[in-house]
């Protein structure tokens, strides 16, 4: 049986791991290569490095981090953050990433999804979507896609479900859906949003943003119909280990790799 995946996400800045609360107030949580190896040993199903800097010097540092990680860690590695061109994608994949994740750049230039998928295959292209609820309380739920969520979120006018569908049509092989309302708050995923996306697309959906406990992950996988859960601070500061989460899920009948 195909397992549901538990994926730690490491925000990396200038070669070090940081994690923000609601994307801000970065705290240093260590060396990404060491953390990656520790997570691999601890049972992580994949790893995501999110490069939260985009200057060219720091991009070169990131490539070095990816190369050193890929020499030591033999589970899938996704790199996202600041990738704007097919050439940017190529450099990360050549350095040892298995997939690249794109977000703002894909909104600005949807052709990037298609070009990346054609060159590297859909399995390499992850479309990451930041979305916020925009319906009035008495309306059915609706979510809008935002870009530049780190500092100064900009509304795009795109409906999140429509954008996910279009991204898959263009060649995205997986969708990461991040609820901006929930991110960093630790109150759980936006389950309505997850379910709406999972119903709309035929590729794996990865839930991100807002996890404070294994119960939230269970809800995201079972009620939200996600294929995988992505989380950062819950693991980095030792509140729960990956095995804690997997045991919790397994005891409740969710198939996980132990």
């Amino acid at each position: 049986m195909l397992k549901r995946r538990v994926i730690p996400c490491l925000d990396v800045k200038a070669g070090r791991v940081v994690k923000g609360v609601a994307f801000l107030n970065h705290r240093d949580a260590g060396d990404p290569v060491e953390l990656a190896a520790a997570y691999d040993a601890g049972g992580a199903d994949e790893l995501v490095f999110y490069d939260i800097t985009a200057s060219s010097d720091e991009r070169d540092i990131m490539i070095d981090v990816v190369e050193r990680t890929a020499a030591q860690v033999f589970i899938p590695l996704t790199v996202g953050g600041g990738l704007r061109t097919v050439e940017d994608m190529y450099r990360m994949l050549r350095a040892g990433a298995d997939k690249v994740s794109i977000n703002t750049a894909a909104v600005l230039n949807p052709q990037l999804i298609e070009d990346g998928a054609r060159r590297f295959g859909s399995q390499c292209i992850v479309l990451s979507i930041d979305a916020r609820r925009v319906n009035a309380p008495d309306e059915p739920p609706r979510w809008q896609v935002f870009t530049h969520t780190g500092h100064n979120p900009r509304p795009t006018g795109l409906d999140a479900v429509e954008w996910a569908r279009r991204g898959v049509d263009l060649g995205a092989g997986e969708i990461v859906i991040n609820s901006m309302d929930a991110d960093g708050v630790g109150s759980g995923y936006d389950l309505d949003l997850l379910r709406a996306i999972a119903d709309a697309v035929g590729v794996p959906v990865i839930a991100s943003g807002g996890v404070g406990s294994p119960e939230h992950m269970y809800a995201g996988l079972v009620e939200g119909c996600a294929d995988a859960v992505l989380a950062a601070s819950i693991f980095h500061f030792g509140a729960y280990t990956i095995q804690d989460v997997k045991r919790y899920l397994a005891e409740r009948g969710v198939p996980v790799r132990m």
Partner: peptide
């Protein structure tokens, strides 16, 4: 099913 199959399987 979701295709491609992506993930860990027995």
């Amino acid at each position: 099913l979701k295709v491609p199959q992506i993930g860990w399987n027995q």
